[in-house]
């Protein structure tokens, strides 16, 4: 059986989620760099055979292929013998899944706003920015109330893959022209994420802590 391979593009926040979790878990997998911009290699036939919609990241081991960052995060966290980023108890697990779903649906606007602002992707940047701001407000409101209870992360007292999935769109929000000024609870949460063992950055997320 061959080793796990991550098909990665360094500027894609969804790929960063996976690299961040791997680093926090201290796990290593082989990486293949995919030329998304300007090469559009993610849309080539061999890539589409693994990820039909042309999205990254992709995780592959022989015939086993996963696309969608949240599925890959779940797989990697479940595979960790200590389950550090995916609690077992049903209530915590449910909360992780709730915020994981939120990250793919509500924060989709943030991903598109950034792609439109930075990589010429088509889109109504004002509408996308408004939707992204609404999502970040929901997150800030939630973390404000979490902090009342002394909880530092989205699903409870410990970081989970929900935090990993939610982090990039906030950390990169200046790329699509939303500042951090109006999100004090998210600033505090982001500082906690930055202090995690194994934390790594990606281009656009300054490395100063």
């Amino acid at each position: 059986m061959s080793a796990l391979t991550l098909y990665n593009y360094d500027l894609d926040e969804n790929c960063y989620k996976v690299r961040l979790l791997l680093s926090c878990l201290g796990a290593e997998v082989g990486q293949v760099a995919v030329d998304v911009f300007p090469g559009r290699e993610n849309l080539s036939a061999p890539m589409r055979a693994m990820s039909p919609s042309g999205t990254l990241p992709i995780l592959k081991q022989d015939d086993f292929v996963l696309h969608e960052a949240e599925a890959i995060l779940s797989f990697l966290a479940r595979r960790d013998p200590d389950r550090r980023f995916l609690p077992d108890d049903p209530a915590s697990f449910g909360r992780v899944m709730m915020w994981l779903t939120f990250s793919t649906r509500e924060l989709d606007a943030a991903v598109h706003a950034r792609a439109t602002a930075m990589m010429d992707a088509p889109g109504d940047i004002e509408a996308l920015r408004t939707a992204a701001r609404d999502a970040l407000r929901i997150m800030d409101d939630h973390m404000t109330r979490q902090h009342f209870e002394g909880l530092d992360y989205f699903a409870g007292p410990q970081p989970t893959i929900a935090d990993i999935a939610l982090f990039p769109s906030f950390a990169l929000s200046r790329d699509y022209n939303i500042d951090h000024d109006h999100f004090p609870a998210l600033r505090r949460w982001a500082r906690a994420i930055r202090k995690l063992d194994g934390f790594i950055t990606m281009p656009g997320i300054p490395d100063y802590h």
Binding site: D179, D181, P184, R187, R188, R191
Partner: peptide
């Protein structure tokens, strides 16, 4: 909301 060692912008 402004912890020691942190900054934010405002208007």
């Amino acid at each position: 909301d402004i912890a020691p060692g942190t900054s934010t912008g405002t208007r």
